[in-house]
Nucleic acid binder design. Structure first.
Lengths: 218, 218
DNA sequence: GACCCGTTACTTACAGCGTAAGAAAAGAGG
DNA sequence: CCTCTTTTCTTACGCTGTAAGTAACGGGTC
């Protein structure tokens, strides 16, 4: 079998932008963003680093592709008539869950405007839904922007907090609880007592608050 | 003059964590985050790279310091009794303006929980204000988190959009306007017509919406 | 003055990075 | 068989963060 090139033929058949991005996402999920180098990614794919430059123009584009790939995995923003608030709430929840599955790409999602061709479709249908609900077009764009920004930011804080909690570093609740109780009494209290709701519930509450605000003020 | 060590004595007198961080912030503001290397920063300070490790344990800590330094520059969140909504609106506006003065650190601000000792004071006084206004403590923390996350995220999008606009790349309004008008009619329309408000006004509107939502739902 | 010592600074070195340039191999069509 | 295109590998350059060791300084004590 396999009349060999350098490695056994067929075990890596194909290679494509998609496969490169998927491997990069897997690498980053496994070992963190800092571990992603062209050489390492090449090794994961059974290929030399420079080979990757046939599927991606440079490393920055590869990072863009990672963000794009994650956003694709979130549920589409489907517009079902006048029920725009539950639709946006579902979309927000889905996007949050997807982002938390790939926490390593969150720093990337923050620094790049998520308007790759793939995400434009979601924005377009969101705009249609909100315009049908009576929003002026500009305001509709604002609502979508605000919601998306909030979801990404919230997920980033959740991920950072989780990461920091499991090592007792500054920012963890354990760290908060041992703070100088004289200088920061409320912080210490908030750090000690369970706030009574988990991250998902707190997120949902905040999203509803945001959307309610836009509903009233529009 | 200057009985010289290697460089003229006195022209760089001192050097301290603060001076290192300030120089790093200046460098990053001038040339971007990617241009920040220990060697370059050292050169800016008239010093070799390794010298910096006396004031900062490693590069990551230096980046943490950058974020801390920027947050210090925003107006403090002062609690003036029951007027919590205008107070938070002012705080949000000040933080946004400060962040936009140093757009290069925005990616850093996103990935790090902004709970350095310096920012804890702001959180504490925010908590006091909101608790006095009747919020349960956990909810008060949620409000502050949501607001801060939103401000950072919004500033990041503004900065990224501005950067991308001035080079006509994907994501710019120019790019949006030339999109396939058949597939994305609303996006194209939103991209063409001025939305009628500048970034600051849109930001203020969204902040008010968010706070109004928390007010009603609390 | 001479001595010493902690702090600050420099030098050297290493492994790894992104990627430019060009050679070599593999597959397709004649 | 040869030739052309696409894919892959090789080599090389300048840069990075930082570990390790060394030298110079400033200030205290005799």
């Amino acid at each position: 079998m396999a009349k060999g090139h350098k490695r056994a033929r067929g075990e890596r058949a194909g290679l494509s932008r998609q496969r490169v991005l998927d491997a990069a996402l897997a690498l980053v999920d496994r070992d963190g963003l800092a571990a992603l180098s062209m050489r390492r990614l090449g090794a994961d794919l059974g290929v030399e680093a420079m080979t990757l430059y046939h599927y991606v123009p440079n490393k920055d584009a590869l990072l863009d592709g990672l963000v794009e790939r994650v956003f694709e995995q979130a549920a589409p923003l489907t517009a079902d008539g006048a029920r725009w608030r539950p639709a946006l709430e579902r979309y927000a929840g889905s996007l949050r869950r997807t982002l938390l599955l790939h926490p390593a790409v969150l720093p990337l999602a923050m620094s790049r405007p998520a308007v790759t061709p793939q995400t434009l479709g979601a924005v377009e249908s969101g705009l249609r839904m909100l315009r049908d609900a009576g929003f002026p077009l500009g305001r509709a764009l604002d609502v979508l922007n605000a919601l998306t920004v909030f979801v990404i930011g919230h997920a980033a804080v959740e991920a950072a907090t989780a990461r920091v909690n499991e090592q007792g570093a500054p920012g963890s609740t354990a760290y908060l609880a041992q703070l100088d109780a004289a200088r920061f009494p409320l912080l210490v209290e908030a750090g000690q007592g369970g706030h009574g709701a988990d991250d998902a519930a707190r997120f949902d509450y905040a999203v509803r608050a945001l959307l309610a605000g836009f509903d009233g003020g529009a």
